[in-house]
Amino acid sequence: MSDSAAPRLAPLPVRDWDTDTRAMFRGHLSSAEKYLSGAPDAPAMPGILGILAHHTALASAWLAYNGLLLERPTVDPCDRELVILRVAWRSGSDYEWAQHVRIATGLGVTPAQIDAVRHGPQAPVWSAVQRCLLAMTDQLLDRHRVDDATWAQLAQHFDNRQLIELLFIAGSYLCLALVLNSVALQPDPEREERS
């Protein structure tokens, strides 16, 4: 999807993280210790975390905010992932796409649905609600506003908290895609193989 092969800003290697950065990640990610353990079998740090490590204060705020969307959602995680995948596809974010294909697959989103995200709300695999979520995402990306008809359909299926959360999911992952595309972060190799 992207047009840049060489990263503009490489993830900061864990060996270069200071004590404050390590402590901040431990405070925000339940999985931090497995990456920071230094054990021979420790998994590679995801590239996005290495990018965030360049700015510890911003990383702290982002991880707290994003943690709410991922760990304490009011929206069904499969619905969330469809919105994120549509944002990733439309914005050309290879990294975001690869990460969220893996997450969506783990939640039970089918390969046919993941493929259909590329085709948008018109694909025949979607339920009425899923079609509406993808239309919402496209409208936000194209016009920066959900139209009245789509909003009315969404409001039949989602309460006010969920409606706000859906808007923030689309906006947040567009923001993240802009960052990832601009620094030219490449998909994590082990993630790429699984997607």
Rank of each mutant, 00 (worst) to 15 (best):
S37N: 09
E192I: 00
P121C: 07
P77S: 04
E190T: 14
R15K: 13
V179S: 03
L141Y: 06
E96R: 07
W17Y: 01
V75H: 08
N181H: 11
T21M: 04
M136V: 00
D16W: 02
D115S: 12
L141P: 09
H54Q: 04
Q99V: 10
A88K: 13
P11A: 04
H144L: 15
R86T: 10
I84Q: 02
T56Y: 04
L166M: 05
H100V: 03
D138R: 02
S37A: 12
I164L: 15
V129W: 08
I84K: 09
T21L: 03
A23I: 03
V125H: 11
A149G: 05
D148F: 06
L178D: 04
P46H: 05
R191K: 10
S2G: 07
V87C: 06
L69C: 05
H100W: 10
S60G: 15
A88Y: 12
G47E: 01
Q139Y: 13
Q99T: 10
P77E: 03
A155L: 09
P187V: 03
Q162W: 10
W151P: 00
R72I: 10
P43F: 11
V75N: 08
G92Q: 06
T150G: 11
I114M: 04
A152E: 14
N66Y: 11
Q139T: 03
S30P: 09
L69I: 15
S31H: 09
D138F: 13
Q186T: 13
R80I: 03
S31G: 03
A177F: 07
V146Q: 13
L176R: 09
T56F: 04
H119I: 00
V101Y: 14
A116P: 05
A135E: 15
L163D: 12
A6Y: 06
D138Q: 06
A23P: 08
A184H: 15
A39M: 09
T110D: 03
R143W: 11
E165F: 11
A5H: 10
G171W: 10
T105Y: 07
E71Y: 11
Y173Q: 05
D16H: 12
R131L: 05
W89G: 01
N66I: 14
R143M: 03
A135T: 06
E165R: 06
L154P: 09
T74L: 03
Q130C: 04
G47N: 02
A6L: 10
P40S: 12
E96H: 07
V117M: 01
E193N: 06
L141I: 14
S4K: 13
A98C: 09
E165M: 07
Q162S: 08
R15E: 02
L141N: 11
L49D: 05
T21I: 01
T56W: 06
N181K: 15
P40H: 11
R26G: 00
A155D: 10
C132K: 01
S182E: 09
D3G: 15
P13R: 09
Y65I: 07
L52M: 15
D142T: 15
A57M: 05
S60F: 01
A32R: 13
